[in-house]
């Protein structure tokens, strides 16, 4: 297993980590089911690919624009979530994923089923970034995304999202504008997914609609749930575990999906808080006591 291969896996883990953290803002913090996160991953990737290839814009300008595009369409889904709730919303987001991938697939503008080739590796001050530095850059973005997520969870915004997740009627009665914050959660979460798409497009340099299809959304959801929904460490460790493990265990390659599916079933059945969530048995074992009692040492 060469260094180049490890770098590739590392970069993909970073991209998935950003996806899982950003989905967690929508589903973990704000409690809104989203099974179409890969669509925004795709919007970011396609936006950046087209901006750099067709308009000749540089990576560093295209990236924030792509983020904004994904965030704006995410906000639209946020608006939809005001009317469609719960299970209906979950199915709607599957549908949105499906429709957006179809647009990529059947429109010549987006390169059709063959996707877009020849996407450029980014440059910094005119110098092409090497693979190793690209990984470092991705790690940096994971750090930024995690910091953003941490700030949200520690702020009034995070409190408002928590209230909406727990009980919308009570949140409204407590003066929280649920509509506004749901839209904010979707916009922010999807914008970060867009950034992950940018990083993916310029790393792979070749994207197809299938890279952003519904199964990818499920993978992201699974990473978040297996790690521990609602926490920050959960999605990061979940992405690390689920993106890296099947790659590192090459003999398992043929059983990759079996392993994924099995892991999801076992986790949801026996450890729905996730491996690293609050009350998770691994954390209890590592710490020797419940994380809850640790956090509330006062009582």
């Amino acid at each position: 297993m060469g260094l180049g291969y490890l770098t590739t896996i590392g970069t993909l883990v970073c991209i998935y980590a950003i996806l899982a953290i950003s989905l967690n803002i929508i589903s973990g913090y704000a409690g809104q089911a989203s099974l179409g996160h890969a669509a925004f991953f795709g919007i970011g990737a396609y936006a950046s690919a087209l901006l750099t290839l067709k308009l000749g814009i540089g990576f560093w300008v295209a990236a924030p624009l792509a983020m904004m595009a994904a965030g704006a369409i995410g906000a639209v889904v946020g608006v939809i979530s005001l009317r469609i709730k719960g299970d209906f919303l979950a199915v709607t987001t599957i549908g949105i994923n499906f429709v957006i991938v179809t647009v990529f697939e059947y429109s010549d503008f987006f390169g059709g089923a063959y996707g877009i080739m020849g996407i450029q590796y980014p440059t910094l001050f005119g110098v092409k970034i090497s693979k190793g530095y690209y990984l470092l850059m991705c790690l940096g973005f994971v750090g930024l995304c995690a910091l953003f997520s941490l700030l949200v969870s520690k702020s009034w915004l995070g409190l408002a999202l928590e209230a909406i997740r727990e009980n919308e009627a009570a949140a409204e009665a407590s003066g929280i504008n649920c509509a506004k914050f749901k839209i904010i959660a979707f916009a922010f979460g999807c914008a970060w997914a867009g950034l992950a798409g940018v990083l993916f497009a310029h790393f792979m340099r070749f994207i197809t609609p299938n890279d952003f299809a519904f199964p990818i959304s499920i993978t992201i959801v699974a990473m978040m749930v297996v790690g521990g929904i609602g926490t920050l460490r959960g999605p990061i460790l979940g992405a690390l575990l689920m993106a890296a493990l099947p790659e590192l265990l090459r003999p398992l390659a043929n059983y990759r999906l079996l392993f994924y599916g099995g892991l999801i079933v076992l986790m949801t059945r026996f450890q729905p808080q996730g491996l690293f969530g609050d009350k998770a048995f691994i954390l209890r074992m590592l710490l020797g006591r419940g994380p809850r009692s640790m956090r509330h040492s006062g009582d």
Binding site: D87, P215, A222
Partner: peptide
């Protein structure tokens, strides 16, 4: 056994089971 969990939990379990079965049929 999952009925008391959050609504999203059985949904994700179901997706996991579907992936598992699909791969099992393939194998």
């Amino acid at each position: 056994p999952m009925l008391t969990e959050e609504r999203i939990v059985p949904l994700i379990a179901s997706v996991g089971l579907f992936i598992l079965c699909e791969d099992l049929f393939r194998l």
